[in-house]
C-alpha cells in the first residue's frame, strides 16, 4: 500500500501478510477479481483453473490470487534457508495481456516497497514450459538486484491449445520477495504478522512443523502403492467425467457439462505423480510416460472447457 507508514504492521516490508494484502489490493484496484486459493494440492499457481482453464477461449479475464504450491521433492525438513515443499505464489492472470503489463508489474513492485531509484530491476529471458499442462509461453524472470522475484509469461499455448487471445501471467515468489523486503536470509525468520515482542509471529512459527512433518511424509512415509492406485483412479475418473459431460448426438445443448470436475481429477493425478516422484519410485523412463498421461488429461480437459460457457461456447 503506497504510503503505508513503515511502523504499520501491514506495511509490506514488515510483514508477510502485509505483502500479500498489498498485492491483492493493488491488483483488485486494477480490475482483477481477487480469488482465494484453489482447494486442492497443486505444484504451482498456474494449475488453478482460474489460470489454466480461463486462459483458454476468447473471453476476457482478470484475476489475482494467492496459491499454496506443493513441491514434495523440494522438501528439506525445514532446514534449507530458502527451499520448502509448501510455499506461496501470488498469481495474476490478465487476458488479453494489456499493452502496459510490464509497467503494471513495476508499479506493483513499487506498491510493495521496491524503490526504482535504488534497485536494479531486470527482465531476463526465461521461456516457460509445463510439460504436464501441455503449456508454454515466452517471458522473463524478473530480477531485483540479482534475485529472481517473479516470473512473467505471455501464454502461447495451454492444454495443447493456442491461446487466442494471449494471456499475461505474473507469478510472485512471495517468501523470497518477503525475505528481500524484510532483509531476512531465512524464510523461517520472516515476520508473518508485522508485530514485535511477544505478539510477533514468524513464518517458522506457522510453518516449520508442517515442513518437517510433510518432508517426512513425502520422502519416507507416503504409501506408494496407494499413490499409484490414486493416480490411476484419478485418471480413470477424469476420463469418465470427460466422456459423461460430452453432449450426445442431437442434444439440445451442445456444450460440455463436466469440464471443471474432470479438471480437478487431472490436478489430482498430477499431484499423485509429484508425490511418487519425490518418493523416488518412478524411474527415468517411466517418468516421461507419467508426464504424458497427465498431459493427455489436461489437453482433454482444455478441449472440454472450450465447449463450455466459460470457454466461450454459446
Amino acid at each position: 500500500m503506497a504510503g503505508a507508514p513503515v511502523s504499520d504492521p501491514m506495511n509490506p516490508t514488515r510483514s508477510f501478510q502485509g505483502l500479500l494484502l498489498t498485492l491483492q489490493r493493488f491488483w483488485a484496484e486494477r480490475g482483477c477479481v481477487v480469488l482465494q486459493p484453489y482447494d486442492m494440492e497443486v505444484g504451482a499457481g498456474t494449475f488453478h483453473p482460474a489460470t489454466t482453464l480461463r486462459a483458454l477461449g476468447p473471453k476476457p479475464w482478470k484475476a489475482a490470487y494467492v496459491q499454496p504450491s506443493r513441491r514434495p521433492k523440494d522438501g528439506r525438513y525445514g532446514e534449507n534457508p530458502n527451499r520448502l515443499q509448501h510455499y506461496y505464489q501470488f498469481q495474476v492472470i490478465l487476458k488479453p495481456s494489456p499493452p502496459d503489463l510490464q509497467q503494471l508489474y513495476l508499479d506493483s513492485l513499487q506498491a510493495i516497497g521496491v524503490d526504482m531509484a535504488l534497485h536494479d530491476i531486470r527482465f531476463v529471458e526465461d521461456d516457460w514450459e509445463s510439460p504436464t499442462l501441455g503449456a508454454w509461453g515466452l517471458g522473463w524472470e524478473c530480477w531485483c538486484d540479482g534475485m529472481e522475484v517473479s516470473q512473467f509469461t505471455y501464454f502461447q499455448q495451454v492444454a495443447g491449445v493456442e491461446c487466442a487471445p494471449v494471456a499475461g501471467e505474473l507469478t510472485y515468489g512471495l517468501e523470497r520477495l518477503a525475505c528481500y523486503l524484510q532483509g531476512v536470509d531465512r524464510i523461517m525468520d520472516l515476520n508473518f504478522n508485522g508485530l514485535e515482542g511477544e505478539d510477533r509471529v514468524s513464518y517458522g512459527d506457522v510453518f516449520l512443523q508442517a515442513e518437517q512433518e510433510f518432508s517426512r511424509y513425502n520422502f519416507e512415509h507416503a504409501d506408494t502403492a496407494m499413490l499409484f492406485r490414486h493416480f490411476n483412479d484419478a485418471e480413470a475418473e477424469c476420463r469418465a467425467l470427460l466422456a459423461a459431460g460430452e453432449a450426445g448426438e442431437g442434444a439440445n445443448d451442445p456444450r460440455h457439462s463436466l469440464a471443471l470436475p474432470a479438471y480437478d481429477q487431472c490436478i489430482k493425478a498430477s499431484h499423485m505423480f509429484n508425490l511418487l516422484d519425490a518418493r523416488g519410485v518412478i524411474s527415468v523412463t517411466e517418468r516421461q510416460s507419467y508426464i504424458l498421461r497427465v498431459r493427455e488429461l489436461s489437453k482433454a480437459c482444455g478441449a472440454a472447457w472450450l465447449k463450455t460457457a466459460g470457454g466461450g461456447a454459446n
Partner: peptide
C-alpha cells in the same frame, strides 16, 4: 528463433 503473439490482436489467427 522463437516468437510470440500478445494482446488483444492475438485473438485473431
Amino acid at each position: 528463433p522463437k516468437s510470440m503473439r500478445w494482446g488483444k490482436a492475438s485473438a485473431a489467427g
